[in-house]
Design a binder for these strands. Structure first.
Lengths: 338, 338
DNA sequence: CGGCACGATGTTACCGGTAACATACCCGAC
DNA sequence: GTCGGGTATGTTACCGGTAACATCGTGCCG
């Protein structure tokens, strides 16, 4: 049994009573100290400390009609790429005293809608969304709310409000052309499910388009789509190798998949890139470390989060944002697997 | 310029006015429908839908003195082990309509204290902490708040309130004894910084204790401590191999470090486990996939989060929790690297 | 046919802060 | 000595919900 109902959390009123001043004076002492006489302020601060007073941000939020919370909707928390975007966001927001609240969707636009609704009910001051694929209801709610909103990770033609990202399609095309130029053929593709995941969809499209314009045909049996984790990458590689053993290079739409694919190739004693070449996408930590080192495409993930956070802070400070759609670009990284 | 100040979010009052009833009736219609006449309820619901009314949880939280939020303080978001704990927590809480808010500390007890204070100010209904190492002020605040609190990931002798985890020390000892029995010597250790990280500290202790009781000495030059990421694991392995080339097996206090170490060994063309054996800790996805497959120790990470969430829900439902300190155990997984 | 219980709805006050306006006081200038 | 202005503090009302109690019909029973 624990004594939890003992003493309630101290309130502003108690601090005020003990200091012999009105509640408003306490608010001022804590919030805009220069408006309060030195002696009074010191007395109040001492009492607040002694009681362990912490302001109730719920109440403040209600009074000010702003909570200081920003909601971020992301597909997964288990993905280090996403985690870095979140880190960038969090850092940028923290600098302006906003706090981040994160919700995960598992790549479902319906789940995203639910999270957005929940965030709006919590009266967040702004919202970050992953990608540009949303339900109409999500878009309607956000438009109606009038809150600052950034769509991150892909470029939006018609952003709900603002966007920061890069072209997954162009980037994937770049990798594909590299593989084609080096003479690999036929090319295989392993990617995440494109449903409600525009980054994956665009990467596949970019890959296929590049192949087509190089005169290479890419039929469906060369493309495997699957969950976004390492074992799934390995299974997809197994499927692809069983189905089309002649495949000479595989483009994976995420490093996590590429690493799984590499392990599967190693289990089959295939030399990389001698027997089969592999290219990834993201440049996770592991890409530079794995042996052989993974050829991949680096995307400025921390930067995406940071920029998004800054755009949100600008808006919340009442300023206009210059580049409502920001392209942060990408960088091809040639290593040893292709 | 966008028309965000146009129409404010609809409030309860507006729904009430349009429906021609009092605000209280609207609250009832939405919250306990059976208390309201069918016709009235239907009318209210129609109007609420038409307006896109969403209740203000800030205001509700203030009125009810409970926010429906649970705060979780974790060291990192970029770690998939932690992400799974968070997932377990989130799932368990969601089932009872609580929402999770996450904060990261970067393995700093001071940063943890700041997060806890912030959560208390946000009036969360309960708190999850990682590990059992906290500042005295953190402990004092939580005790005084009387909120349900679970410390996860390690077993607490004297929990602040409740705890769920396993003994890192015993588990590390188990791995060490396995390496010793197989005749590897000398043994090296690569671990995360022990500062403010009791799991890392206990793993090192368990490892060293097992070596000692087997009559093996472990001097400091055989132990390398570093950041908890993959490149750091590789660098630590390089350091260890340069310093003590005769090392025959290395225990890594996390799979992330072990994988980095394996890559470093591979770059040096060392056979695993022929030239150097490696054992990890966590059993991440990659452990089973990497070639050769990593010998490691599986900890029920999702289960830790889920149990913690359930304990919190029990408490919040006003029930007593039977096992305030729960040991979820661990499982040694012998694979090919040791 | 009166009284009573119950179901449906309304009224009041409060949760813990804060903006906006009001007040009290002090000091210096004329 | 009075008046104006600035500084320190107090008062009132409100943010958007909800608990607790009050009220008002209405149908059923004796």
């Amino acid at each position: 049994m624990n004594n939890r109902s003992k003493r309630a959390r101290p309130r502003l009123t108690e601090v005020a009573t003990l200091a012999g001043v009105s509640r408003m004076t306490v608010t001022r002492a804590l919030h805009s100290p220069h408006q309060v006489a030195d002696a009074t302020r010191r007395k109040i601060q001492k009492i607040a400390n002694r009681l362990g007073y912490t302001p109730d941000l719920t109440a403040r939020g209600l009074a000010l009609q702003r909570t200081g919370l920003v909601g971020a909707v992301v597909p997964l928390l288990t993905n280090s790429l996403i985690a870095e975007i979140v880190q960038g966001l969090s850092d940028a927001l923290q600098r302006h005293d906003y706090q981040l609240v994160v919700g995960a969707t598992g790549f479902s636009a319906r789940a995203e809608e639910v999270k957005v609704r929940a965030f709006l009910s919590r009266r967040v001051d702004a919202i970050y969304l992953t990608g540009i694929t949303h339900t109409v209801e999500t878009i309607r709610m956000l438009r109606q709310s009038g809150l600052p909103c950034v769509e991150g990770g892909n470029l939006a033609r018609q952003p709900i409000d603002m966007a920061v990202g890069y072209s997954s399609r162009d980037a994937a095309g770049k990798v594909a052309r590299y593989l084609i130029e080096r003479g690999y053929a036929p090319l295989g593709y392993i990617g995440a499910w494109p449903k409600d995941n525009d980054r994956a969809r665009d990467r596949r499209r970019g890959f296929v388009a590049a192949c087509r314009s190089a005169g290479l045909s890419v039929d469906d049996s060369l493309c495997v789509e699957t969950d976004l984790d390492l074992p799934a990458g390995a299974r997809a590689m197994a499927t692809l190798l069983d189905r089309r053993p002649e495949v000479r290079a595989v483009f994976c739409s995420a490093d996590t998949l590429a690493v799984g694919a590499m392990f599967e190739a190693q289990r089959r004693h295939l030399a990389i890139p001698g027997d089969v070449a592999i290219a990834g996408f993201d440049d996770l930590d592991i890409a530079a470390q794995i042996v052989p080192a993974l050829t991949t495409l680096r995307v400025p993930r921390y930067e995406i989060g940071r920029r998004a956070g800054e755009m949100i802070c600008e808006r919340l400070a009442g300023r206009e944002v210059a580049n409502a759609v920001t392209d942060v670009g990408y960088e091809f990284v040639a290593r040893d697997t292709a």
